[in-house]
């Protein structure tokens, strides 16, 4: 008998449901978008709160500036756009109008990573974590599943601080269960003693699967869900350095400056650093293919994570 097929979810659905629920309770919540009412899954919001959806059209710099103006006037704007365009096109607005001005905007990078598969590198957002991590004062949150997406939306609405929320489109299984989302804190989804896998977003379920399979090979893997990329939970990394023999990072993003680089900077400054493997995209533009194919192409499957972890365990 084959194993039951695991149910998977598009996190944009949970995002929109939670946003609408919050907006019913708090009229300061508004949404700003760049013609992305459909792709940001804001149709329901637009129907229920037509005056509170500000669609500026295909104009990302304007979108982020307008969001900042709303935030500086006491509103709680969720500024939504496909992540490559939100972060790439409006990077200077994110830096100056949002982060440097300390305007509490919730930047929602929809369909990040390689979720747009065959549409190609122009529509991929693998650089977002890297370039946003360089901006002071900007929180970066990457929920791993629908439950964590909801919790992150609730947190962001109340946070009164600039934040980037990476909202996945590529379907993922539920992995966080009843664990609470705490900004700035990694959650240990599985404990282990040999190697730690630090994963974020779409990679978390794959890390769990890798740990399950590695257990059959006698390798004990700890899985950390690093849903806050900035500020990084350095204590969780230092504990992993002390308590396990190696660290694998896994992200649907470039390893140049993303999660792997962030973790590495903590590891190398530890009293007794451990070996690492960074899984992600290594400064390459993707070839043509759907998301699943591309994740495989770049070595981001459960099997790849397991292989990297087992190698570190035996090394």
């Amino acid at each position: 008998m084959s194993a039951p097929v695991q149910e998977t979810f598009d996190c944009r659905v949970a995002f929109a449901d939670e946003l609408i629920a919050l907006a019913r309770l708090d009229e300061r919540i508004v949404a700003v978008c760049n013609d992305s009412v459909g792709s940001s899954n804001l149709v329901g919001f637009a129907t229920e709160f037509p005056d509170r959806l500000i669609n500026v059209g295909i104009a990302e710099q304007d979108m982020v500036g307008v969001g900042a103006g709303l935030a500086l006037s006491g509103y709680i704007p969720f500024v939504c756009g496909a992540s490559p365009f939100l972060t790439g096109r409006a990077l200077e607005q994110i830096k100056a109008d949002v982060a440097y001005s300390q305007s509490p905007v919730v930047l929602c990078g929809m369909s990040p990573g390689m979720a747009y598969g065959e549409l190609g590198p122009t529509h991929h957002s693998i650089e977002d974590l890297s370039w946003l991590r360089a901006i002071a004062g900007l929180g970066i949150v990457v929920p791993a599943d629908p439950s964590e997406t909801r919790a992150a939306v609730r947190w962001a609405a109340a946070a009164a601080t600039p934040v980037f929320l990476r909202v996945g489109r590529f379907k993922v299984p539920a992995v966080t269960g009843d664990l609470p989302f705490t900004f700035g804190t990694a959650s240990t989804l599985r404990d282990g003693t040999d190697v730690t896998v630090v994963a974020t977003g779409t990679m978390v379920s794959r890390a769990l699967q890798a740990a399950e399979e590695a257990a059959g090979q006698g390798v004990s893997i700890r899985v950390l869900n690093m849903s806050t990329i900035a500020p990084l939970d350095e204590e969780a990394i230092r504990a992993a350095v002390r308590e396990t023999r190696g660290i694998v990072t896994a992200e649907e993003a470039t390893t140049t400056g993303g999660l792997g680089a962030a973790v590495a900077s903590v590891v190398v400054s530890s009293p007794a650093p451990v070996r690492m493997r960074m899984l992600g995209v290594h400064r390459e533009f993707a070839p043509t293919g759907n998301t699943e194919f591309l994740l495989e192409h770049f070595g981001l499957t459960a099997a790849d994570i397991r292989a990297a972890a087992v190698e570190l365990a035996h090394g």
Binding site: R52, V66, A68, G69, L70, A71, L72, D97
Partner: peptide, 15 residues
């Protein structure tokens, strides 16, 4: 940068 932010402020004032 100033005009987009000001547009946001004007939208806020109207809301």
């Amino acid at each position: 940068h100033g005009l987009p932010v000001s547009v946001g402020m004007a939208v806020a004032g109207r809301l």
